[in-house]
Design a protein around this nucleic acid. Sequence first.
DNA 1: TTGTAGGCGTTATCAA
DNA 2: TTGATAACGCCTACAA
Lengths: 345, 345
Amino acid sequence: MPVTIREVAKYLNLSITTVSRALDGYSDVSEATRQRVMLAARELGYLPNRAARQLRRNCTETIGFILPADASRFYDPFSAEFIAGLGVETTKQGFDLLVSTAPSESASEQQAYERWIHGRKVDGIVLNRVHLTDWRIQYLSQNKLPFVTLERSLDPFTYPSLEIKGQHWFKTLIDHLADLGHHRIAFIGADPSLKIQADRFSGYQQGLAEHDLPYDPDLVIRGDLSSEGGYRSARILLTLPAPPSAITCIDDQTAIGVLHAANELGWLVGQDLAVAGFDGIEGFEHTQPPLTTVNQPVFDIARRLVQLLVQQITGKLLVEEKVHIEPELVIRQSTAGREPAVHLP
Amino acid sequence: MPVTIREVAKYLNLSITTVSRALDGYSDVSEATRQRVMLAARELGYLPNRAARQLRRNCTETIGFILPADASRFYDPFSAEFIAGLGVETTKQGFDLLVSTAPSESASEQQAYERWIHGRKVDGIVLNRVHLTDWRIQYLSQNKLPFVTLERSLDPFTYPSLEIKGQHWFKTLIDHLADLGHHRIAFIGADPSLKIQADRFSGYQQGLAEHDLPYDPDLVIRGDLSSEGGYRSARILLTLPAPPSAITCIDDQTAIGVLHAANELGWLVGQDLAVAGFDGIEGFEHTQPPLTTVNQPVFDIARRLVQLLVQQITGKLLVEEKVHIEPELVIRQSTAGREPAVHLP
DNA sequence: TTGTAGGCGTTATCAA
DNA sequence: TTGATAACGCCTACAA
């Protein structure tokens, strides 16, 4: 049985009150007793019972994250890096991280949020994969539970968030390809209700427009943020009568599948075909050929989100805070190489 | 403010006792009142306060996992898939999953375990990346906290675990390569105190022995379960005076780096050089060329571990249970292709 | 500077 | 079948 504060008190012939205050660093306890208490606590291996503390203080020192895990795609390197960042910073802040998974936009997702909120399991929640209108943001706002998001929805609520300018940076990627002489640039995206899809796709369109390139709906395919989706989409694109000379992807994961498909169909990526991803997933510099991408520091973003959330929970952050992250365009061999060949229909 | 059991009771003019028992499905409450209670609870949106319940019942309905995140390698697809599996099954079992990260074998790792155990944050713990002798297993055994492991240490304790026969299956991989005519087969491993390193490396040695291939220490390099480590190790191996014709890796992550290095140095993987991984990470069929590996169902393994743990926590599993998982050898192009060239020193 | 006492929301014991 | 009551371990007015 773990030792309780009562036993520490008894051991020292002190009251529970004094022990409690000594450990919590109150000023109205003599230095001598504090030392005694600290020592005894360590000796006896006392650690406060979290449930009791939670009940009393009405806070859990725990933050929650529900991985939007769709049936077909339970995990991906982006989420791995994100969770790792959450875990590291949460621990650093003296909090715990509660993780669950639920298919996006499902009943079980909603139940998970309800359980945590009404059951007082968590003090705050981190959201990612935000939708253009997102019921979670409405729900959390209404229930007044602190939360932070990666990317902002269009819902008119006040909350801290991090965001990268997806439109701007996707356009930058298109600039890069247009400058290399590409005329037929494809885009493999995702669910149109996702904020990142809206942003990145409009960056794509804007890029085409600025370089006077025609918009061809045949070159736009909806993937699903997975390698498998990228693979399937690329096979369609590359067997068109007039295939693209460059394929841009909403994320790196999708791009991996594109590389595979291209290779299988005999395209030499970096020479016959340019491929670019987005996100800068750690480790994806080891693709063949290494992948051009827009590198956002996912790990650090996750850490920063936790910081914002903890500040909000502890009341140190009262106003809306909307932080912009500056990613960088990383050009690697998948878009290097010679001028694109002209493909006749 | 969330509604409490007291308010439900008041609303129905019942005692909190009755409400509590009705909701927990005790038999000594009339069917009529049970219905009324259930309905009222739903109407009012009552969900039990977890902290109070934990305090009273002395159990948390939460299981914990501490990701052994070394400074250089915070995350990887293996862990992502593993955590996703834990999350899905934990939720399914009506439990919550608490996640933290700490560098392996560090003071902070130990503190994390202490905090959770003595603070009664979790009812049980999942361990992976087990070491040959593992202090965590000793510690948890001594503190009588239920736990399960992926892979078993040599410590003589009783606990449920899953295991794949790493030695056997690595040998199978060597068989495959030897059958293709490879004579100089390299091995990139990891920290020798890891159980998987011990198993897989001895499988490697056994495989060589059975095919009468000489053991050359130059062909064995210690990596660190990362692509970066694989990359560095492969650069060493491939620039040896007598380089190997095949490189086997302790895991897929390492193999990714090997593919990159080989490509960079102008080796045609699948033709000049065979490369094989181990684990069968989801999505790694999209490498170039697709990677030969031993495929173990990481996602399902994680789910199974949670099942074992929950059974142990709820007392439904009393004896040591040591389950073996059967993986499969998946041969892809990275080891296909023609006979290995003979490299003269 | 220290101690006493009450209560956080729930469940379990016992009596009605 | 139901209800009063006492914990669980901790924190915090308030009193000493």
